[in-house]
Amino acid sequence: MEARRRLQQAALELYRERGFDQTTTAEIAARAGVNERTFFRHFPDKREVLFHGEAALRAALMQSVAEAPDGLQPLEILLRAFREAGRILEENRPFSEPRLEVIAKTPALRERDLAKAASLTEGVADALRQRGVADRPAGLAAHTGWAAFHQAAGAWIDDPSQSLDAHLSRAFDDLRALLTTASLMKACPGS
């Protein structure tokens, strides 16, 4: 476990110093004080070193959706779930913040991030379906909720004076306002 953490930290440092494309797994291993074989025991490639926490994030999201009180609307269930995910990011802020910056600057990492996000979103949609939310609304809610979470995480990086939870609440408030505005516009077609 300690070697994994050292490898993640070493990779993050090297990616920030030299860039992702210019960094090799051998350099990451050397910086972490292990051999390259140890790197590959923990991670399949140099992209995955920054995405190791996905399993814990997925588990937290699924558990939170499953354990949400009955009677909540899908977006409220998701807000609770993403608050749990947000706590994980906040607890790891010294790693989370520079990690998000490196991903934003690196096309190969953005691609991996999008694939991971799609997988997590589908998992959240499945968890909503298991709670009885119909197929299409579950998918739509999961994608919309993930977009709000992603926007909140970006705002948190840009404005660390407020907690991720505060940014997440604001994003979901904006989403509710958007839905209300759309409903009002639909009710008053000529205005």
Results as ranks from 00 to 15, higher is better:
residue 2 E to P: 03
residue 8 Q to E: 15
residue 12 L to P: 03
residue 13 E to Y: 10
residue 14 L to Q: 09
residue 17 E to N: 08
residue 22 Q to I: 01
residue 22 Q to Y: 07
residue 26 A to Y: 11
residue 28 I to Y: 02
residue 29 A to E: 02
residue 31 R to N: 09
residue 31 R to S: 11
residue 33 G to E: 13
residue 34 V to P: 11
residue 42 H to R: 04
residue 43 F to T: 06
residue 44 P to A: 07
residue 48 E to D: 03
residue 48 E to N: 04
residue 52 H to D: 10
residue 53 G to H: 08
residue 55 A to I: 08
residue 56 A to L: 14
residue 57 L to Y: 01
residue 59 A to N: 12
residue 66 A to K: 15
residue 66 A to T: 15
residue 71 G to C: 05
residue 72 L to M: 08
residue 74 P to L: 00
residue 74 P to S: 02
residue 74 P to R: 00
residue 77 I to G: 00
residue 79 L to N: 00
residue 80 R to Y: 03
residue 84 E to C: 06
residue 84 E to S: 09
residue 84 E to A: 13
residue 87 R to H: 07
residue 93 R to D: 10
residue 95 F to C: 05
residue 96 S to H: 01
residue 101 E to K: 14
residue 104 A to N: 06
residue 106 T to L: 08
residue 106 T to I: 08
residue 106 T to G: 08
residue 108 A to M: 02
residue 108 A to V: 04
residue 108 A to T: 04
residue 110 R to L: 12
residue 113 D to I: 03
residue 113 D to Q: 12
residue 114 L to V: 11
residue 114 L to I: 09
residue 114 L to A: 13
residue 116 K to H: 11
residue 118 A to P: 06
residue 120 L to W: 02
residue 123 G to A: 05
residue 123 G to E: 09
residue 124 V to T: 08
residue 131 R to K: 12
residue 132 G to T: 07
residue 134 A to P: 03
residue 136 R to Y: 01
residue 137 P to E: 00
residue 137 P to D: 00
residue 139 G to N: 05
residue 139 G to P: 00
residue 141 A to T: 09
residue 143 H to Q: 14
residue 147 A to L: 12
residue 148 A to K: 02
residue 151 Q to I: 04
residue 155 A to L: 10
residue 155 A to D: 04
residue 158 D to L: 05
residue 160 P to H: 12
residue 162 Q to Y: 14
residue 164 L to R: 07
residue 164 L to A: 09
residue 164 L to I: 08
residue 166 A to P: 07
residue 167 H to T: 00
residue 169 S to A: 12
residue 169 S to N: 14
residue 174 D to Y: 12
residue 175 L to Q: 08
residue 176 R to T: 13
residue 181 T to L: 13
residue 184 L to C: 00
residue 186 K to W: 04
residue 187 A to D: 12
residue 188 C to Y: 15
residue 190 G to Y: 14
residue 191 S to R: 15
residue 191 S to M: 15
